[in-house]
């Protein structure tokens, strides 16, 4: 029940962000729905006992994959959906507590939180990389050697 309320609140918060970034009106609600799904995926993964970073990778991957899929269907840039989609994962709370710890002079706590923030941000990026490589499959150019095929 709590989770349902959280998903609804995420949906509206992401709608707000959609307006801030001025995404096209026809994908505003799609972005909100993807954002709600992202939060749901994150919480479900956490409940299944997966660690925070891996859960973030899973949620970010599903959001970015949905964004790429929908972008192809609707002929719009993928960022208009993927930016709202991954926003629920932004470690804003962790970043804030990092800053707070440094202000109060608790440097060890600050470093701990800082490393966790960086890992979480890296996990979001990793999920996006996975989705991007999935959706550009077959367009490889061979980066290191010219093998001639």
């Amino acid at each position: 029940m709590d989770l349902l309320l959280e998903v609804v609140i995420t949906f509206f918060a992401i709608l707000g962000f959609g307006v801030i970034f001025s995404v096209p009106k026809r994908v505003l609600f799609i972005g909100g729905a993807v954002g709600g799904w992202t939060w749901f995926a994150l919480q479900m993964s956490l409940q299944m006992g997966i660690t925070n970073v891996v859960a973030t990778v899973i949620a970010s991957f599903t959001a970015a994959a949905m964004a790429h899929f929908l972008a192809k269907k609707l002929h719009i840039p993928a960022t208009t959906i993927s930016i709202p989609g991954i926003l629920p994962l932004v470690p804003g709370s962790l970043a804030y507590f990092t800053m707070l710890a440094f202000v109060e002079g608790e440097y060890i706590t600050g470093l701990e939180n800082g490393v966790q923030t960086m890992l979480q941000a890296g996990a979001i990026a990793a999920g996006m990389v996975l989705a991007l490589s999935l959706f550009s499959f077959g367009k490889g150019i061979g980066n290191r050697y010219e093998t001639g095929n």
Binding site: I9, A13, I14, G16, F17, G18, I20
Partner: peptide, 17 residues
Amino acid sequence: VIHIAAGVAGSGFSYLF
């Protein structure tokens, strides 16, 4: 509308955090 949307987004995230 953008300011109100910012308010909605901010309050939503304060609940989620």
